[in-house]
Design a protein around this nucleic acid. Sequence first.
DNA 1: GTCTATACTACGATAGAC
DNA 2: GTCTATCGTAGTATAGAC
Lengths: 192, 192
Amino acid sequence: MKNQTTEEKIIEAAGKVFSQKGYAATRNRDIAEEAGLNMALLNYYFRSKEKLFEIVMAENSRKFFSVILPIVNDFDSTIMEKIELLTDNYIDLLIESPELPLFIFNEIKVDPDSFKGRVQVDMLFNASHFISQIREVIPEVEPLQFVISLFGMILFPFVSKPVFYTDEQKFRQQMIERKNYIITWAKAILKL
Amino acid sequence: MKNQTTEEKIIEAAGKVFSQKGYAATRNRDIAEEAGLNMALLNYYFRSKEKLFEIVMAENSRKFFSVILPIVNDFDSTIMEKIELLTDNYIDLLIESPELPLFIFNEIKVDPDSFKGRVQVDMLFNASHFISQIREVIPEVEPLQFVISLFGMILFPFVSKPVFYTDEQKFRQQMIERKNYIITWAKAILKL
DNA sequence: GTCTATACTACGATAGAC
DNA sequence: GTCTATCGTAGTATAGAC
């Protein structure tokens, strides 16, 4: 990543600072400084702080949600294959971008409509092939309870990270181990 | 709650607006409006926005963490009794204050030191009686993995609420049902 | 395209009347 | 204690030189 254009430098810097401090708390100065440029360039390329944020946000949502869709709507894989793929891919992604879940959930809370346009929640959860498989295997429980639990198993450690971990290295290590923990958990719950 | 002093009105309004928008995005004007007063009074009673926030934050952390300590360090209760109490008390609390977890986790991310002074994490998790009980029952797994999973089961639905739920009534209903879901989950995982 | 200097605006805080 | 009016400053956005 050496030969970046100025535009790319700004987006990368903005992504970093926005997700660390949140929209309101980051100043254009912070982004410019992080990118090694001056504030005027942010407005030259993106017209306003808000526009820049939208671009960063769109990219982050894509990263965050695009893992899910191809997996949960694959008709050829078993339920456990889906769970293994989701767990594996998500934890790998989140080890690289641990601040992503908190950032996304926050933004969705502040502005729920903005992401409803971008993300088809029905396709992901309510109407996916994954949901029908869950319904088959454990018909006695509301599938949404299971789906939320699964995503909680995967995402919650990253949301709550500073409460449970101070040692970065230990966190990383335990997140890798957590993959197997989640698979085992799922098998027990689904009685497989 | 009819006869509140002005001071109480401000704290209540501030708690509401801060947890909706976060510290940086809330303006003193918003708090004053919510309280039905004018901005000057915020500074009259609390000297600054930051001071006011600290008071609100202290109260919220107390609410959020004080549920845990007496339960996890009770030497007379079984592991399942602890889990049942935690689940039951927390979900009741969070149905009343659903925005609490996201608000707390956010603030801790922005300023991790501020809460380390207030909350004794070791007493809650690492060194609690609850942890030793977990170690006895499932010695093959890292107890922290289980603790994080349990709190994830309880808290994650509230963090991710707008992703999975649009209907407020349905959410409430499923959170009440979730109590039993979590108890059943815990029994399965602990092989009890 | 990139910079410095500056205009504009929004916000937190305070002074002073009641 | 509570209000209205206003100050000071920090932050976003823009103009204009290079």
